[in-house]
Computed example of a mutant assay.
Amino acid sequence: MTIALAIHGGCGTLPKSEMTDAEWAEAKAHLAKSLRAGWAVLSKGGSAVDAVEAAVVVMEDSAHFNAGHGAALNADGEHELDASIMDGATLAAGALCAVKRIRNPITAARALMQRGDPLLLTGPAGDAFAQAEGLDMVANDYFSTERRRKNLASMKIRELVGTMAGASEAEKHGTVGAVARDRAGHLAAATSTGGYTNKPPGRVGDSPIIGAGTYARDGRCAVSGTGKGEYFIRYCVGHEIASLIGYAGLSLQDAADRAIAELSAHRIGAGLVAIGADGTIVAPYNSEGMYRGWVTPDGLVHVATHADVDMVGQA
């Protein structure tokens, strides 16, 4: 059976001029590391759920992406993190939102999924659950980076002078996610984010909402989205793509393109990665760039930040 893996690091990609060549190289190296972590699971016969968790953990630990270390700051200068994971074989899922102390929120979401009930925990309850599970806990400032502090200052100024609409995708938001198909044909999806810069405390986006930013269903697809979460929730994007495949008979590419087109009509940044039941991979986006990558069936790792895609060796 064909194994498949794709990831994204958010459609909030910086313009090329705003990072050095060395910084871009490091960001791509972290994408490749994420893919290799997930592929190592799949190639050894591991589950799609294990693979997407492994891939997302790597990106949560990287300062280049808006999840875990490197997450966006809210209006109070704090980090509130969201994450979810879904098993396409059983439709089991786990999700956390507005947590502040969990080093790897995706691992906590996985632990909650394994418990089975509840599916979603918020804020202090999510942090308490992760601590009781013995997961790595950190101080909130562990997630901070100089770039995110500068982003918050920039957005505060824009708010004062009325230029919020002119903010770049990179200033505003970003997300990480992974989708996979294992040797048994099962699908899984995982998504993690810090939300958007200067968001109101307590705001929850689409990443922890099953059917919106994260969805997986065997026989149809697995989807992880990135962009303006409020619209992903309104359109139930993940579930919509699965429904277009299941009920309208669309291909994965056509279904994903239709979903992005509907979001684009609102003039918002949006992107996603998705895997079909047969292992087909798509990664549409409408912004200047999207951190993304996938592994082809021959084990070759491909990563990209803007239009050009680089092949960076074997997984």
Rank of each mutant, 00 (worst) to 15 (best):
H79P: 06
P105C: 07
T107E: 13
A72H: 09
A72R: 04
Q131M: 14
P118S: 07
G123T: 04
A89W: 05
D76I: 08
F65Q: 10
D87Q: 10
H79N: 09
V58T: 14
M113C: 01
T107S: 15
A63D: 06
Q131V: 00
D82K: 03
P118W: 03
H79R: 11
L120G: 07
E78Y: 09
S84L: 12
G88D: 06
G123K: 07
G88R: 07
L96A: 01
G116F: 03
L135P: 03
H64C: 12
P124N: 02
G94A: 04
G126E: 04
D76W: 01
I102P: 10
L135V: 06
G126R: 00
G123A: 15
C97A: 15
P118M: 05
A111L: 13
G70K: 10
A111T: 05
L135H: 10
T90Y: 07
L96V: 07
N74L: 08
G94L: 12
L91H: 11
G134R: 00
L91T: 12
Q114I: 14
D127Q: 02
R101D: 03
N104Y: 00
R110W: 13
A92P: 12
G123Y: 03
D76H: 11
G94F: 08
L73G: 04
T90R: 05
G94K: 06
D87M: 10
I85L: 12
N74I: 05
M137N: 02
I85C: 13
R110A: 13
D127M: 02
A75R: 15
A130C: 00
D61A: 14
G123F: 01
R115I: 02
F65Y: 15
F129C: 10
L120I: 14
G123E: 04
L96E: 08
M113P: 06
A132M: 03
H64I: 02
L121K: 01
D82S: 02
A98R: 09
V99T: 15
T90M: 02
P124Q: 13
V99M: 02
A109P: 01
D76S: 14
I102A: 04
I106G: 12
D136E: 15
V58E: 14
G116C: 03
V99E: 11
L119G: 00
L96Y: 10
L112Y: 09
N66V: 02
L120E: 05
A111F: 01
K100E: 15
P105N: 05
A139M: 05
M137R: 11
G94P: 09
S62A: 15
G134H: 01
N66I: 05
N74R: 08
T90Q: 12
D117Q: 14
D76G: 14
A130T: 05
I106E: 05
A71M: 13
A75V: 02
N66Q: 05
